[in-house]
Simulated scan of single mutants.
Amino acid sequence: MTAPTPASPRPGQRGADRAAMLRVDQAGEYGAIRIYAGQLAVLGDRHPMSREIARMATQEERHRQHFDAMMAQRGVRPTLLQPFWHVAGFALGAATALLGPSAAMACTAAIETEIDDHYGKQLDALGPEDPALSGAIAEFRAEEVEHRETAIAAGAENAPAYPLLSGLIRLGCRTAIALSQRI
């Protein structure tokens, strides 16, 4: 019997990879809901962007519910960091909204840029092997790209110190992805 090569996965590795994908995707959708909740808490329901933020939050909630169901069907546990993402997501949303509507939209644009990249990598890794998961990821990715485009059209790039703000949020998002896959 030969040992698996680095190019061939160990038995069970693909299932573990899919579990990590589901765990991080569910955590990301949950975090997005909390970010939008923080933004809406600051901006209120009378701001012109509030209706659009609420619409995006509703889509994120649908994504989260779908991943919750897939996790339950497949016996995948959520990240242990969920309580942290609950607070951190709301705080990020509120903090960026306090900087102004363009900063709130910069937050959305930055996060959705990372999620687009993240989902693209997941789709490449999955290939045709798990059509239920890849189908959900592809559908949700399209909506995340639309969120990014909406945020940019709403003035995300006009936020104070946009390149710095965007870069910091994107770094935080990549860190959250890495942590949620493992913990």
Rank of each mutant, 00 (worst) to 15 (best):
T108F: 05
T79E: 00
L123K: 05
T96Y: 08
L99V: 08
A161N: 12
P11T: 11
V145K: 11
I177H: 03
D130A: 05
T58K: 13
A41H: 14
A72G: 01
A110C: 10
I152Y: 06
L22Q: 02
A72F: 02
Y162P: 05
A57H: 05
D17E: 15
Q82P: 04
W85A: 01
M71P: 01
E114W: 06
G93W: 00
P163D: 08
L81V: 08
A97E: 00
E29N: 02
P128V: 12
T58V: 11
S166M: 09
G38I: 03
D45V: 12
P4V: 10
I169M: 04
T58A: 15
L165P: 01
I152D: 04
Q26G: 08
D130T: 01
D45A: 14
V76E: 00
G31M: 02
A54W: 04
T5G: 12
G38W: 00
I53Q: 04
I137A: 00
H86N: 14
A7D: 14
S8H: 14
A7Y: 13
R23A: 01
A136L: 10
F90Q: 09
V145G: 04
V87L: 15
L165Y: 01
L81P: 00
Q73C: 06
C107F: 06
P78L: 03
E139C: 07
L40G: 00
R174F: 05
A103Y: 06
M56Y: 03
A57E: 09
N158C: 12
G155R: 04
L168W: 10
H66R: 14
D25A: 06
A88C: 11
R77K: 15
D68P: 00
E61P: 00
A151I: 06
A154Q: 09
G127T: 07
A16S: 13
L164N: 08
D68I: 00
A37I: 07
T108W: 03
P128A: 15
I33S: 08
D17N: 13
A54E: 12
E114S: 12
G15Q: 13
E146H: 14
A138Y: 02
E114F: 08
I111S: 01
G100C: 09
S50R: 05
R77F: 10
R51Q: 14
G167T: 08
Q181W: 08
I169W: 00
A136E: 06
Y119K: 06
A57F: 02
H66E: 11
P4N: 10
A178M: 12
